[in-house]
Design a protein around this nucleic acid. Structure first.
Ligand SMILES: [Mn+2]
Ligand SMILES: [Mn+2]
Ligand SMILES: [Zn+2]
Ligand SMILES: [Zn+2]
Lengths: 137, 137
DNA sequence: GTAATAAATGCACTTCCATTGCATTGCCCT
DNA sequence: AGGGCAATGCAATGGAAGTGCATTTATTAC
């Protein structure tokens, strides 16, 4: 298990105290987090710093942003070997309408779609909504 | 060609002057429209009225709302025989990162996805981003 | 080590869109 | 005409994203 600070450095992100906390918070979580989630997880965290931390993480492919249709952006760690550079998010996301949580289904890839002539897709976002495993149990 | 007012009535929407204008505006358009788009299309239109008009249309399955990831909701007429009730949006949407337009690809259905145990999908949203036919020509 | 430089942080403020409250107007039915 | 409900218009609010700028902290140069 590569330590968090070394990991961030390997991604080109300077491992400040706050960044390490955010990274580890996301690493512990099975679900995607909103900015407010993260803000509330740390008593003395400034919203703007967290916002910019996540932006930096996103640029350096540490996290990916998820628009699950709830109106609030969520963030989750990228998979190892994830090539967000080419296709931001090949896997799909599941948004539970009961508990409101959103999770990455990294095993479920977005199928290839044949588009009409003239359309060139560079990116895809597939969100399924319904009841998650915890809520349907 | 069924007249607009009869069509709205058949959907359980009272065909007021403003509603007819909005409906016909959407019917003419090949692309999904934002609330501001519609507001700008009519000089003396109140934003709130349009907002509620679209909300009513959505509830009565006259239009569907599209979250293309641009941060602004867009609206497009439902297809004839569309069963939004069961699966809000079976077809996919294409968002052009060049011209900013979003169009319904009603022929392109969202493929069925096998989910892990415990997950029950009720709804799906698939948005492809890239260059549209007009911009790639 | 100290000074210069660059990066990160904190606070205030702005912007943009969605949404609501409430008074008013218009429509429909009796 | 009058009662009642639906639709409208205007004002205000809320929530989230994003920006400006001063301050602190870390890095680099000397
Ligand atoms: Mn994901
Ligand atoms: Mn559509
Ligand atoms: Zn759930
Ligand atoms: Zn285009």
């Amino acid at each position: 298990m590569i330590p968090s600070d070394k990991f961030l450095e390997s991604k080109g992100v300077r491992p400040t105290a706050m960044r390490l906390l955010v990274f580890q918070h996301l690493a512990k979580s099975k679900v995607a987090k909103t900015l407010s989630d993260i803000e509330n997880a740390f008593a003395k965290a400034d919203r703007t710093t967290l916002f910019r931390t996540l932006k930096t993480f996103e640029q350096k492919r540490v996290v990916h942003q998820i628009d699950d249709g709830s109106g609030i952006m969520k963030y989750a760690l990228c998979e190892e070997g994830c090539n967000c550079e080419l296709e931001r998010d090949l896997h799909l996301h599941f948004h539970c309408t009961n508990c409101g949580e959103t999770i990455c289904l990294t095993e479920q890839k977005i199928p290839h779609i044949n588009l009409p002539d003239g359309f060139v897709a560079e990116n895809a976002n597939l969100v399924l909504k319904g009841i998650c495993d915890k809520c349907s149990g």
